[in-house]
Amino acid sequence: MRTEAGIAVASLVALALAGRAAPSPALLDPRRLTASTVEEGDFPKRMVDPGGREVVLRARPGRVVSRALVADELLLELAPPERLAALTYLVDDATMSLAAGKAPPSIRRTGGGLEELLSLEPDLVVVAEFSEGSTTAQLLSAGVPVLRLGNAGSFEAVFDDLRNVGAALGASVEARRTIEQMQGRIEQVQRQVAGRPRPRALYLSGGQYTAGPGTLTHQSLTLAGGHNAAAELGLSGAFPLPVEQLVALAPEVVLLASPEPSARLARPSDLPPNIPWAELPAARHHRIYLVPAAWSGAISHHAIRALEAFAALLHAPPQGPP
């Protein structure tokens, strides 16, 4: 009995030691990572990193590395290419990236592996909210300054990302200019759709996923003068939509994410085969459209392209069969 008690005590002590050993809970729980904030003004300036610690950016970063497509797009907008050490390989994929063709080949493309990132000797790494938490935590452990973007679920959140990246790069003026341009285009869309009827619209990506409240897509559909039918389901974020619910929602307009470079009316051959399209008002009135995934998936300043496309398609005059 005494032996059993000794073993139990030793086990509990070992577990307690294990608990004290891991200094960064972020390594084990990505919910502990937060969006970074950077103060405005001249260098040196303070940045709160994803671990919640305050770090000092002594000078304009000159070897900036991106770990996400959204970061690629923001960095190319705000920083001269010579200050970018690496972008993701996704930046050249025109089916996903609105920065395709804009990044000089002299900038290295990376898959985002930890060793590769460290070997680039970055003075700033920009990661997205969805970037792998363990790599972010290890970069922080290695003393690399990391700027983590926020959850871009609205245009206001995109503005925050622009402000923070701009401040970190010493490009606050450029960031403000981009935000003002976006605000101007949003106001223009709102003027265009004011007073028009709001069609019941549904966005589908990958033939199955739709977007509820808390997403840029939802906000764009609303600002574009539509009613996001998926919001009636009471779910938030992106979620898979069962076929039954899709039919029950009876959307008047369906917007399908597509790898094509421009928006157009969908042909029957474009439609995912598992859905009884003929039951939908959108199909009966020939109002199913393809929207480039690079537009509708953008969570950078390029998200404005999706907003403008949605506004044009939701209020497009009726057409005949494609």
């Binding site: 030691l17 294990a18 050993a21 891991a22 452990s141």
Partner: peptide, 15 residues
């Protein structure tokens, strides 16, 4: 073991 470092080692070792 991708992304595993010293904290993980310290976590597993005593147990």
């Amino acid at each position: 073991l991708d992304g595993r470092g010293w904290p993980h080692l310290r976590l597993a070792l005593p147990v």
